[in-house]
Design a binder for these strands. Structure first.
Lengths: 197, 197
DNA sequence: CAGACTCTCTACCAAGTGGTAGACGACGGC
DNA sequence: GCCGTCGTCTACCACTTGGTAGAGAGTCTG
């Protein structure tokens, strides 16, 4: 049978385990067991745990960058619609795969070199968003505000919900996908209201 | 000399170490060394690592609850000023002690029982804020919006910045206290703009 | 002083960690 | 049939982890 290659399956399980439980808390052995293989096979594909973490970050970043930059290039001219699309794009992968949110929460603790590489890949996207916001504000199609703040807020909101999905419960929502979607939708209309000219 | 009691010093170091590096990543031995004592003395004061974590959460919650509920009871009548005070209060402890932000990031991974207890202590505060927002909105002194969303956004923003202070750099700000303060101030005016009637 | 209590210590343990060395079978090209 | 490469395995290592047992020093109370 054409089973998926071991390397891919390891990456797959690693995303979930690292995301839900934390990199430090998950051992190579546990990942191996989840894949149905021995720890030493994991070390065959990834020479060290750190290499595995790096590979996980890379794959995740690839996906995120593709999805989000596609949304940025979306053709609709109305800036509010466009912002909406980006927010949906940012939440999209997280809604489909909650472990990704948990992974974000690991960033602050990982080897700074790894995080730097990841950030240098994401930064151009953020800059593009900021420039776009500035542009539309200059043309009066969005209310004047610090575009970097808007970016920081969106960034922080997503990672914040990532950090503590319990926050959803605390404010009286379910912490499952429905709660996440609801937050996303409310956030969209909130930003709309704040940025509408 | 009236040195601070060992128990307190352990709690103190634990807040910083757990916050900056993560509960799982910090060993009892490391905490003990930071205090200048042997691991077994730590285990004398806290019968297990989990008990230490619980105690840390309790002390932190105590401080937060005091500071925030004081801000909620602030006397100023203008809702915007009042909201401002609460935001400042939420950011206050974090600005003074960045490790607290890191601790928030641990919540999602800790024993659910611990987190539940913490949440049940914070929830009344959140509920009070929500009721207050609803009330002022009903009286037309704040723009109509879902008060739970406002609470969730504020909550998420703080924990988001906690999760990844690097986000500050990504959007072009310093990640130090100045950056944090700036984010706080911008957030205040942003919420003001969004909620002003 | 005697005895209890408080606090920190040394010594130890079983379990688990990331990682190395190398054997073993399967497979393809020659 | 033979050889090398690939992928997984068993066996092992040095080290760290959270936790136990109990000794012993210091102090307070009688």
């Amino acid at each position: 049978m054409p089973e998926r290659p071991t390397r891919e399956r390891i990456l797959d399980e690693a995303v979930d385990l690292f995301g839900f439980r934390g990199v430090e808390a998950v051992s190579l052995d546990e990942i191996a067991r989840a894949v149905g293989v021995r720890k030493q096979s994991v070390l065959y594909w990834f020479p060290s745990k750190e290499a595995l973490v790096a590979a996980v970050l890379d794959t995740v970043a690839d996906e995120l960058i593709v999805v989000i930059s596609a949304a940025i290039r979306a053709s609709d001219d109305d800036p509010l619609v466009r912002i909406d699309a980006v927010i949906r794009a940012v939440f999209g992968p997280a809604v489909r795969r909650p472990a990704l949110l948990g992974l974000v929460r690991e960033l602050g603790r990982l080897d700074p070199e790894l995080v730097d590489r990841l950030r240098s890949r994401v930064q151009p996207l953020v800059e593009a968003c900021v420039r776009y916001l500035e542009d539309e504000m200059g043309r009066g199609r969005l209310r004047r505000a610090d575009p970097r703040l808007v970016a920081a807020l969106a960034y922080a909101t997503v990672t914040g919900i990532a950090t503590e999905p319990e926050a959803l419960e605390t404010v009286g929502w379910q912490r499952d996908l429905a709660g996440l979607r609801r937050l996303r939708d409310e956030l969209r209309s909130f930003i709309r209201a704040a940025l509408a000219p």
